[in-house]
Design a protein around this nucleic acid. Sequence first.
DNA 1: CTGATTGCAAAAGATTTGCAACCCC
DNA 2: GGGGTTGCAAATCTTTTGCAATCAG
Lengths: 181, 181
Amino acid sequence: MAARRPLPTRRRPSDEVDWKHVGLRRTPQREVVLDLVRSCDTHPTAEWIYRHARQALSDISLATIYRTLRILKEKGLIWEFSGGANPSRFDGTSHVHEHLRCISCGLVADIDLEDVRDLRREVSERTGWTLGRWPVVFHGLCQPCATRRAAVRQAAEERGPGEPGASSGPEDDRDLCGGFW
Amino acid sequence: MAARRPLPTRRRPSDEVDWKHVGLRRTPQREVVLDLVRSCDTHPTAEWIYRHARQALSDISLATIYRTLRILKEKGLIWEFSGGANPSRFDGTSHVHEHLRCISCGLVADIDLEDVRDLRREVSERTGWTLGRWPVVFHGLCQPCATRRAAVRQAAEERGPGEPGASSGPEDDRDLCGGFW
DNA sequence: CTGATTGCAAAAGATTTGCAACCCC
DNA sequence: GGGGTTGCAAATCTTTTGCAATCAG
């Protein structure tokens, strides 16, 4: 274990965790990963977390990132959004909220919805499933993707028939918009 | 191209597709894949589709299955549920309906929910996203997984503290319950 | 101390892609 | 006939795993 940049002195999300009760040993790696996921609202990928974690723990490995994310998820401390062939994104579950996921660029956004509580109960009663506090995910297009897609579709229609559901991946979005579908 | 078992003479889902308008050439491979996804309600994986497609088209390749699924998805003819490190599952979108996905075994179930229509509009207005007819996915535990998990948790608590969110993969579920989380 | 955790490198999957042969329109 | 499609095999990419060294309690 090499360079370990002094971590911020202000209170960190990982301080709030009762590690012993959760059944996990408290390590710098786990603290950094949890803090990264909990403190940013960008729903980062494992790769992004890896890059940023290295700024604090220079020799943390990608394997540890994945291992830690999986464990934190299993303990219910964070939530994962699977992304098909593309990387998963993670969310620090601090309070109950729902999600929007863009089917074009994979962006995940949070939203608070009071009304969903009743809906969960209804669904649970009708199906026998346990819906607890797990998120409800709406799928659709974020504004940039909707705009881009509309442009593409119009161009296609001017060229001739076909392409009713033309898709277009994200062109820019260098950092966190990996592209899901 | 070899053995091509006589396909069922009854009307098939793929007959309803206006291939030319969609902008795709009509091929036996595409018909079989679309028919399989549209005619079963089990939300199959690519692998499952491959195994079954071979019964009609003995030398169809897995690459074609994936390519076709991707294309059909891009054209809006089917819907994909990403599964992290685990295989995606597909759904033939015939009418608007919502989904339940088990966070333990990955099972996907359909459910009709009138009330969701208003909710979509509300979310759309509040966020500016385009939610169209894309599905809303509830996450939770299917009955078998909920039962199994409760048992595991109880056993853990009898042994001592910790394990508040213990996870357990599917043990049986040979055919279609791949395991997501 | 002692078992849990980590890094490293290699493995495992799922999905994609290059390319020549082939088939639908 | 010609360009869209397919099969095959190899490549890619994300995530997991085996194992010896190291660390937390």
